[in-house]
Amino acid sequence: MEKTNHVLKGLGYSYILTLATLLIYNLFLTFTSVSGNTIAMASSAITTVSAAFGGFYASKHIKEKGLIYGLLVGLMYIVCLMVIVFLAKENFAVEIDMLYKVLLVSLSGGIGGVLGVNFK
């Protein structure tokens, strides 16, 4: 049960980090002359880093099997995000870009988990 709590906390912290970073990025877009062409790249970077942070947090506190728990946090993160997008969009279709994003975010969670379990 304790491991589940750490995984869910890592997932929650990754979403908090995502929301905070997206808010800062939105303010940056609003009050500067940066074009909106960077939105796709920035959102990919933000979700990737957030999943890595969630995997890092979970495996740092669990202290074992960092790759497995990091992959789990990353996969849960992107699946929950896809469910939110599915509910928000009127015409949702699974595309190859989404599969790449699932792979990228899951792997970044795994990398964060490996780093977290080895962090002293």
Rank of each mutant, 00 (worst) to 15 (best):
M1P: 11
E2S: 13
K3E: 08
T4K: 06
T4L: 10
N5T: 11
H6R: 10
V7C: 04
L8W: 04
L8T: 04
L8D: 03
G10F: 02
G12T: 10
G12R: 08
G12Q: 08
Y13F: 14
Y13D: 04
S14Q: 01
Y15V: 09
L17P: 04
L17E: 03
L17N: 04
T18K: 05
T18R: 04
L19A: 15
L19W: 14
L19T: 15
L19G: 15
L19N: 14
A20C: 13
A20T: 15
L22C: 15
I24M: 14
Y25N: 09
Y25H: 10
N26I: 10
N26C: 12
N26T: 15
F28N: 12
F28T: 14
L29Y: 05
T30A: 11
F31R: 06
F31E: 08
F31W: 11
S35P: 11
G36F: 11
N37D: 15
T38D: 09
I39F: 08
A40C: 07
A40I: 10
M41Q: 09
M41V: 12
M41T: 11
A42T: 09
S43I: 10
S44H: 06
A45M: 09
A45G: 11
I46Q: 05
T48H: 01
T48K: 00
V49K: 02
V49T: 10
V49W: 02
V49Q: 03
V49L: 12
S50R: 01
S50F: 02
A51Q: 00
A52V: 01
F53G: 03
G54M: 03
G54I: 01
G55H: 01
F56I: 00
F56Q: 01
A58Q: 02
H61M: 12
I62K: 01
E64K: 04
K65L: 05
G66W: 00
Y69L: 03
Y69C: 03
L71W: 03
L71N: 02
L72V: 06
V73N: 01
Y77C: 04
Y77Q: 05
I78M: 04
I78E: 03
V79Y: 05
L81G: 13
L81N: 11
L81Q: 09
L81Y: 10
M82L: 14
V83M: 13
V83F: 13
I84N: 10
I84T: 12
I84V: 14
V85A: 11
L87E: 12
L87Q: 12
A88F: 13
N91I: 12
F92C: 06
F92S: 06
F92H: 07
A93V: 15
I96Y: 11
D97T: 13
M98I: 10
L99N: 08
Y100W: 11
Y100V: 12
K101L: 10
K101Y: 07
V102S: 06
V102H: 04
L103Y: 08
L104C: 06
S106W: 05
S106E: 05
L107E: 02
L107I: 05
S108H: 04
G109H: 00
G109L: 00
G110C: 01
G110Y: 01
G110Q: 00
I111M: 03
I111S: 02
G113Q: 01
G113C: 03
L115G: 02
N118C: 05
N118Q: 07
N118L: 08
F119Y: 09
K120D: 10
